[in-house]
């Protein structure tokens, strides 16, 4: 067997990368290590990476300390509904902007571009007010009076995120690249615009939907500020809120806190490890090619 001679710069680059990667990964490694120790070992002045004996029980203890199955169900529900519906809404709007000309298109699209400049924190206060006056929910009448509206509800965590200027923009850019001939051929065949979208455009939207889906999943699962404001009862908590609550209650029991942290991070990390390609291309499409 012949060995390829590896040039020196490549070897140096390899060691730099490996060193940086291990340093970046170290906090995770230490977290896993702590999550498997007894509290006595966490507090002992002598540090060892491999725990004396693996305390898998910590994970069960951490989960038994709160209504965690409820938190996970809430997060799972909110994330999956938000991601699915937002993909449909964003791609439909982007498709309409990209493939048809209609009166008002220019103005409507510029309003989308303005929306790209708005940070989420700016809309929080009015949005909170709107949620409390949401008609016909939470005891409200049709005018939005009398009850609490969508405050402290899962729906209130979902609805504002179902469409975003960024998603609409990204889909439009993607669909602009399709040849016009597709539309013409389909209209000769008598296909309606809806069928054109559902049967021709959606099946070839893999890259943009994967990119958006990955970004939206990460954002929704990790969202903290809006749930912090909107949610005030334990049964509506997301995993992120659950984790902060856990910390207030068990703050110094680092082994349990680290175990809970790992469990909150795990679902997304697993998806990331399985679909690293999509994460990377998602970030790149949304960033550079926009």
């Amino acid at each position: 067997m012949s060995t390829r001679k590896i040039p020196l710069p490549e070897i140096i680059a390899f060691f730099i990368v490996a060193l940086v990667a291990i340093l970046m990964f170290l906090p995770f490694l230490l977290t896993i290590s702590t999550s498997l120790k007894t509290m006595a070992e966490v507090e002992s002045p002598e540090f060892r990476l491999i725990p004396e004996s693996f305390q898998w029980q910590n994970y069960a203890d951490a989960m038994a300390s709160g209504n965690w199955s409820r938190y996970f169900m809430n997060s799972l529900l909110i994330t999956s509904i938000t991601v699915c519906l937002s993909l449909i809404f964003n791609s439909l709007a982007g498709f309409s902007f990209a493939r048809f000309t209609f009166p008002g298109r220019g103005v409507l699209f510029y309003l989308i571009l303005i929306g790209l400049m708005v940070p989420e924190q700016v809309t929080l206060i009015p949005l909170f007010k709107m949620m409390s006056n949401f008609p016909l929910f939470g005891g409200n009448n049709i005018l939005g009076q009398g009850g609490t509206g969508l405050i402290n509800s899962r729906l209130g965590l979902i609805i504002p995120y179902l469409a975003a200027p960024f998603g609409i923009f990204l889909c439009r850019q993607f669909y602009l690249g399709f040849p016009k001939a597709i539309d013409d051929a389909a209209s000769i065949d008598g296909a309606s615009k809806w069928r054109l979208y559902a049967q021709i455009y959606i099946p070839s939207s893999g890259p943009v939907l994967a990119a958006l889906g990955v970004l939206k999943t990460t954002h929704t699962w990790n969202n903290y500020l809006w749930p912090l404001i909107l949610i005030n009862s334990d049964e509506m908590y997301t995993v992120q809120l659950g984790l902060t609550k856990f910390r207030t209650a068990y703050g110094v029991e680092w082994n349990l806190l680290m175990a809970a942290t790992i469990l909150v991070v795990l679902p997304l990390l697993v998806i990331f490890l399985l679909a690293q390609k999509h994460f990377v291309s998602g970030v790149v499409t949304s960033g550079v090619k926009g």
């Binding site: 449909i88 809404f89 439909l92 709007a93 309409s96 409507l108 609805i159 469409a163 615009k193 979208y197």
Partner: peptide, 8 residues
Amino acid sequence: MLAPGYLI
């Protein structure tokens, strides 16, 4: 087609 996303 625009309506759901745009209204939100």
